[in-house]
Amino acid sequence: MTPIRTLRMVAPIAATGLVLAGCGSAGESAADYPEQRIDYVLPFDPGGESDITARLQQEPLQEELGQSVSISYQPGAGGALGWSELTRTEPDGYTVMGCNLPHIILQPLLRDDAGYETDQLKPVYYFQSTPNALLVPNDSEIETLEDFVAEAEANPGALSVGGSGDFSANHIGTLAFADAAGIDVTYTPFSGTGTAVPALLGGHVDALMSYSPQIVQLEDDVRAIAVMTEERMPGLDDVPTFVEQDYDLVDGAYRGVCVPEDTPDEVVDRLAEVFATVNEDPELVESFEEQAFVLENYDPEESIELTDERAGEYEDLLTRLELMP
């Protein structure tokens, strides 16, 4: 894979030739980090939740780091292409990549060879989550979680629940809920939230397991019957949680950034500090709340704990449902 590495190195060098010429060998000493532009790579198509978040972070990041931050995209295979590429990237802290749970747990777990292993990605900081939310159209006869369970019990397998992707937070959330409630529903994966939403609005699926921002975005057209948080979300007081209805389900998609596993701890800690400060940026905080993103603060160590804890739960659930390969 040398050609890739060479070419990937050439591009930033060409772009920052002047900076490099001024500083000599950049990236060797962690104390001076960062000395040049930082590439913030998203392993998804532009326009999604990760993109929106990165755009909000870009400016405060540049202020904190004193260097420019450029956002780019390496989409493919639900993020796996980018993450596999990250394992072959120079561990100098100048390439950070968006990292999502449960994706980076489930892909290596369920695919023969995802191109990377979960622990090859060193988490820097998990700064945001979007809890799972169960949505039905406004005119649906299902008004509560109880109705939903009753409907599923009356017609096992007939209730169709759409969501974004296979073995995503939406999918595993649907599986976990069906398992906890002892019901049988059919999950249909769509290529993303963007294609799942019209399927719900057009009545092609009965319900959608989606993420919290959709509660706000679609408030005119859908009813959120439950959300997978410990407590009701701020600003969404009328949306009950699964927990208060005796389903111990707290889950969703977590967004953070990772670096290659050999990146020096000093660099990781410096980056984590910066992301923690960015999480306090008033504009970002306000925008997060408006869009029903949940602010999270997992430092590198806590991020590893979070990953391990989620991994354990998913493995248990998938083993119980006999879905492990």
Binding site: P75, A77, G78, L81, R111, D113, G115, D166, F167
Partner: peptide
């Protein structure tokens, strides 16, 4: 690449880079 529904890995001949399909 990865099948759009089901997530199976197809015709990648053991090359993870082909999981994204033919762009």
């Amino acid at each position: 690449g990865i099948s759009p529904v089901g997530g199976d890995v197809r015709f990648t001949f053991g090359q993870p880079v082909l999981q994204g399909g033919v762009p």
